[in-house]
Computed example of a mutant assay.
Amino acid sequence: MGTLQVGDKAPDFTLPDQSGQRVALSDFLGEKVVVLYFYPKDNTRGCTAEACSFRDSYESFTDAGAVVIGVSSDSVASHEKFAGRHELPFTLLSDAGRAVRKQYGAATLGGVVPGRITYVIDREGVIRHAFSSMTNIGGHIDDALAVVKQLQAAQ
């Protein structure tokens, strides 16, 4: 499956978070904009930088009516340690079988390294922004926040 595009309906899913609670995309629809970001692995340099950047901008996202959700194939226990170590205030979901990653087309590079892609999903479940870059960590946060603020202003 190819990467989802702006205007596509975001597929619903349910995955366990860092405390083992089941979280579904549909839990937020109608109420919040969802910033859904797929990342390769907990506690790696780039992924830690990205998570900490989302953490540092978290209040701006929540003030604009959004939730931030990170997804990787790491275990619930790994996410719990990662979130605790870096004081991450947002949800991390364990996609152990990579089924959701495949649904969203957040492909692997060279078939080995999981891709890094951020989606902004509006309250109706439509993808309003997609940003894919392994190296431009700041672009994920800055672009997503700009789109969230535009969606808030339009509401």
Rank of each mutant, 00 (worst) to 15 (best):
S133R: 01
Q150V: 03
I137H: 04
C47P: 07
L15G: 05
A49M: 10
P89F: 04
N43T: 15
F13N: 04
I69K: 06
T91K: 02
T108I: 08
D17N: 15
A10F: 05
A96N: 04
A10I: 13
G115T: 01
Q21F: 03
Q21C: 00
H129Y: 11
V113N: 02
H140Y: 07
P114T: 06
F28M: 10
F90T: 11
Q150G: 10
A144S: 13
V67M: 06
H86R: 08
F54Q: 09
R22H: 14
K9E: 09
V148K: 04
N136S: 10
L15Q: 03
D56I: 04
C47K: 08
D63K: 15
T118L: 15
R123N: 01
H79N: 08
V126A: 00
Q152A: 11
G125P: 04
D142Q: 12
V112K: 15
R98A: 10
F38K: 04
A144H: 04
I121F: 04
V33K: 00
S60E: 15
E80M: 09
V147N: 01
K32F: 05
G46H: 11
G105S: 06
P114D: 11
E50T: 11
R55N: 05
T91I: 13
V113M: 05
T14L: 06
P16I: 09
A154D: 06
A106T: 12
G65Q: 04
S78L: 09
G139E: 06
A99D: 14
A66K: 01
E80F: 02
R98L: 00
L4T: 07
G7V: 12
L25I: 09
K9N: 04
G110M: 11
T14K: 12
I137T: 12
P16C: 03
I69R: 03
L25R: 14
D27A: 08
D27P: 02
G138V: 01
T108N: 12
A96G: 09
D142E: 14
F61V: 04
Q155E: 14
Y58M: 08
A83N: 06
H86F: 13
L88F: 06
V33L: 01
D143P: 05
L15Y: 09
H86P: 03
Q18H: 14
F82H: 15
V34T: 01
S75K: 10
A144Y: 00
S132I: 13
D42Q: 07
G2T: 13
G111E: 06
R22L: 11
G115A: 07
